[in-house]
């Protein structure tokens, strides 16, 4: 069983602590995505699980065994790096067989496993080539192949798709997901791309500035973001925020507009509304002055400001909308779609 446990993990470089008390329980076979902006400590966390960075305080366990002081080689993990890190002087076949040779597997077994992985990843034709003779996508597959032949307890991925073009990224994303399902290997996947995070992960760990902001399923994270940061980071286009005062189930925006809410929040709050949760309605209370409509085909993004409040707001409308600059559009903002955060701490209230 390869469940992973992170227990109050911290990491410091000298005096700067870059990861603070990371807790998390990952079940056997789960696909966890660590997501967050650049520099938030995603790679560092992953590398601590891999054994490539030392743990400053706290504990990492795999399969209920504390592995803080175990060498990477002894952790029974495989890792796919952002730059693939293939051995440039070895053929594809040798790249994949390297770890198996070190483990002294019989030759026939090595051959069988390499060929099996090559079939799964459709790289059979390139087995004799050197990495530099492959395209980015093929290299990516080889890197995956090198990980799966080892049949490890845990897969670790550090932004494995970020060097690929958009189309290939979508395709490989699906393949990684299918592969992980098929092999059932516990996986941790690092990305800064929230679409990748939403589509791949059984659960997401949203990291910001070395803190875990939220750890939950993609739907939880989308529907009930734990903080303003998560709310703004997950979802595209990102959530609109406006400050308001709450009292007795009513939110009063700075321009006097009032919105109904079914929470008991009181005092200064930040209200978040996703662009896709603004519903056009002639009698809607929320009035938005259009600055720029972006017609994307399937949807129209209306960028504008709340009338009288100058807060930037974006609405996502179905189809091609005729709105043009300087129009004022009215929207309904139903209470069940409002996210209310404490204005001071940024934490979710409801």
């Amino acid at each position: 069983m390869a469940n992973i446990k992170l227990d109050k993990l911290t990491k410091s470089y000298g005096d700067t602590e870059v990861l603070h008390h990371i807790d998390g329980q990952i079940e056997h076979g789960e696909f966890i995505v660590i997501v967050g902006p650049s520099g938030c400590g995603k790679s560092t966390l992953l590398r601590m699980v891999a054994g490539l960075e030392t743990v400053t305080t706290g504990e990492v366990s795999i399969g209920d065994k504390m592995i803080n002081d175990l060498e990477p080689a002894d952790r029974d993990i495989a890792m796919v790096f952002q730059n693939y890190a293939l051995y440039p002087h070895m053929s594809v076949e040798q790249n994949m067989a390297y770890g198996l040779k070190i483990r002294k597997l019989p030759k026939a077994e090595i051959k069988r496993r390499v060929e099996e992985a090559a079939d799964i990843l459709e790289i059979r034709d390139y087995l004799k080539r050197k990495p530099r003779q492959l395209s980015g996508g093929q290299r990516q597959r080889v890197a995956m192949g090198r990980a799966i032949v080892r049949d490890p307890q845990v897969f670790l991925f550090d932004e494995p798709l970020s060097n690929l073009d958009a189309k290939l990224r979508v395709q490989m994303r699906l393949e990684i997901r299918k592969l992980q399902r098929r092999l059932g290997v516990t996986s941790i996947y690092v990305t800064h791309d929230q679409v990748e995070a939403m589509t791949l992960g059984d659960r997401l760990m949203v990291l910001n500035g070395g803190y875990v902001e939220q750890f939950g399923t993609p739907i939880e994270v989308y529907e009930k973001p734990a903080s303003i940061f998560v709310a703004g980071f997950i979802g595209s286009p990102s959530m609109n925020f406006v400050s308001a005062t709450a009292a007795n189930g009513v939110l009063t925006l700075s321009n006097g507009t009032t919105l109904a809410t079914n929470t008991t929040a009181a005092g200064a709050v930040t209200v978040g509304i996703r662009p896709e949760h603004l519903f056009p309605n002639k009698d809607g209370v929320l009035k938005i002055e259009v600055d720029l409509p972006e017609k994307l085909g399937a949807t129209t993004l209306v960028h504008g400001r709340i009338s009288g409040a100058e807060t930037a707001f974006t609405a996502s409308l179905n189809g091609i909308n005729a709105a043009s600059t300087a129009d004022v559009l009215s929207f309904d903002a139903p209470p069940e779609f409002l996210h209310i955060f404490d204005a001071e701490t940024g934490k979710r209230i409801s």
Partner: peptide
């Protein structure tokens, strides 16, 4: 690092 993880 990849080699280290591969067990070398």
């Amino acid at each position: 690092e990849a080699a280290a993880i591969d067990g070398a």
